[in-house]
Write a protein that binds this DNA or RNA. Sequence first.
DNA 1: ACCTAACCGAGACGGTACGTCCTGTCTTCTG
DNA 2: CAGAAGACAGGACGTACCGTCTCGGTTAGGT
Lengths: 198, 198, 198, 198
Amino acid sequence: MPVEPDPTRRSHESWRAILDATFELLEEGGYESVTMGAIAARAGVGRQTLYRWWPSKAAVVFEVFLDKTNIGPFLAGGEDFPTQLRAFAHGFRTLYVEGPAGTRLRELTGAAQTDPDLARAMAEQWFEPRRAPVRQALQEAQKAGVVRIDIAPDTALDLVFAPMHYRLLVSGGPVDAEYVDAIVDLALAALAPGATPA
Amino acid sequence: MPVEPDPTRRSHESWRAILDATFELLEEGGYESVTMGAIAARAGVGRQTLYRWWPSKAAVVFEVFLDKTNIGPFLAGGEDFPTQLRAFAHGFRTLYVEGPAGTRLRELTGAAQTDPDLARAMAEQWFEPRRAPVRQALQEAQKAGVVRIDIAPDTALDLVFAPMHYRLLVSGGPVDAEYVDAIVDLALAALAPGATPA
Amino acid sequence: MPVEPDPTRRSHESWRAILDATFELLEEGGYESVTMGAIAARAGVGRQTLYRWWPSKAAVVFEVFLDKTNIGPFLAGGEDFPTQLRAFAHGFRTLYVEGPAGTRLRELTGAAQTDPDLARAMAEQWFEPRRAPVRQALQEAQKAGVVRIDIAPDTALDLVFAPMHYRLLVSGGPVDAEYVDAIVDLALAALAPGATPA
Amino acid sequence: MPVEPDPTRRSHESWRAILDATFELLEEGGYESVTMGAIAARAGVGRQTLYRWWPSKAAVVFEVFLDKTNIGPFLAGGEDFPTQLRAFAHGFRTLYVEGPAGTRLRELTGAAQTDPDLARAMAEQWFEPRRAPVRQALQEAQKAGVVRIDIAPDTALDLVFAPMHYRLLVSGGPVDAEYVDAIVDLALAALAPGATPA
DNA sequence: ACCTAACCGAGACGGTACGTCCTGTCTTCTG
DNA sequence: CAGAAGACAGGACGTACCGTCTCGGTTAGGT
């Protein structure tokens, strides 16, 4: 049984240096170019220190990703659900889909396909925290009768989350503001209380 | 100057042995356990023969994936669009989402996040051939007035394709028949000619 | 500036535990398997405590060797030189050449080839104390005219000490009682006052 | 079961570069400073190539030692045994006891104390080839009645070989020409047909 | 009865070397 | 003469130790 090291013994300087070094390496050459050895060398840290706190380079990169991007988007309160949802979707796109954050998200999600630990960590620490507030608002909207009650909340959420991730990871299609608007429109249409199939 | 190998010289026995060996290795240990060396050894083939015809293990695995799965789903003719779409979605789920094919699809899509050549090959040879017939049927349904005309076809397609891939690749949620039904229902509701947002 | 540790503060329990742990590790896996970390862990002692009192694992192992073997052989008084020499040689063989002590002696002498500090310590604290009484007896025998006077004492001593160490360290040949007898016979023949070359 | 690589496939350039690099590293920093990684880097060779042909750095260094020193000493023919023996002993001292060769011999013999494979290789490929011609000459001298017949040849050989190795490896005493002469004198005295103990 | 200084166990730290694995190229021998 | 076999340079991996360091806790005088 692996002994969990006492986090209070952890050297803050090393931890910071490791995250910074990893960030720089990611910016310079992308995920593939990052290696445990390169991180250690850049950070001026022993290789073993890396392995003491992270099981793999994927874990380090994920922590950097969390460290740099754990800033939203937040759900605006005091607005109606459609407005909230649209604002959230645009915020998500701005923060995570384009630019380096999008590339990191693609690379990490890619690595997670063959790394169950990473997949679990990302699900718990990244994806779920972003779905949770929207789920909450959705369920309130359902109770208020603004959204169909006969849809499982997670299925409804997928209508907005899935297309953005799908274009990012699979189809490579553009995820611009127009696309986000269209997706939100379609989701709201599908979720309208009296909606019926074509 | 790299000489382009003459495809007519390609040995069918070797080609077959390589694909079979790769398939076996995938079944036995998954994508991570496959290496060019292991394929060559298992196939009784020289390493160079592999590199002559494929640039990377991803390319070999993708060819195996194509070889084993290039069998549908097909779009039923002579039925109305909702019926066609639903049947297609269930067919897709059955063939590619669960079982080994789903695992291969996840692994390859994962690898494609850091391998642009693989990403392009998969888009052209796998994803697009599956979207194309549905796009065709959708556009005919739009012309027939059965589906809203004001939606870009690829955006509309995403309503069905995205959720299945999202659960497979990102959320890890179940992709069962109920989910597929729900997604198709919601897509059709969103695409109904008179649909309006919540 | 390195402060010299105060020897009076030395914990006897730790010292004992370290020597015992080292001895056990040597018995279990030989010199190669002993590490400073393993000694500390086995002794229930901090790593730093080891380094406070010994500069290297070789030094610890040598102290264990001294601790366990510093018991002779002794030179019998009141006998003639040939008898003394023969008894000493057999005693040496019994105590140090065979069994674990012989293995330790081999390993330490081996390590001393690339560790001058260890080499010096062994020469002063182990080899010389064993040569000294024999040298003393030899010199008395020379004065008494029983042994040739024209041979440097250390050269004469080598006639007995060298063959046993040579077989132990270099040739791997047997160092049994017959060999010791033969060596002592030859040495005495060479050292006889009237001896002349072949 | 480890597959023995086919020696005919061995790259002569790499082999030469490895031996030369190892020799240089030995000259520069001694045995301790040599590492498999440093050899590979200096030789411009892959690490795996080293491990393909040698099991350890000790094996490489031993091969370098053989390569550089496998040049004698030779036993002069047509002379009487005492003259042959003395010339051989001086030749041995000149070639192997002083200078870098002596240091290498010490380091390798040291390493052999905890490396049985090395010990065996050295015994077979280095020590025995140097003892063999002397044993041969000794046995002829015994048949000719010039040397006592009642001494095992290997015991007799030890009278000359052991003291030189003992001073080199154990006592650190000088191994100069005077010492060699004295040792040869004593050995011959001990081996004279009519020799009797003191 | 309290300081205070050195000791202690524990273990994280920066490093170095290890031996293995895999990649993509090059060479040799064989059917 | 095509291709199986495998050696090659290169480089990342994860592990094992090294010797130093920092952290609290304990012990032992000296006040």
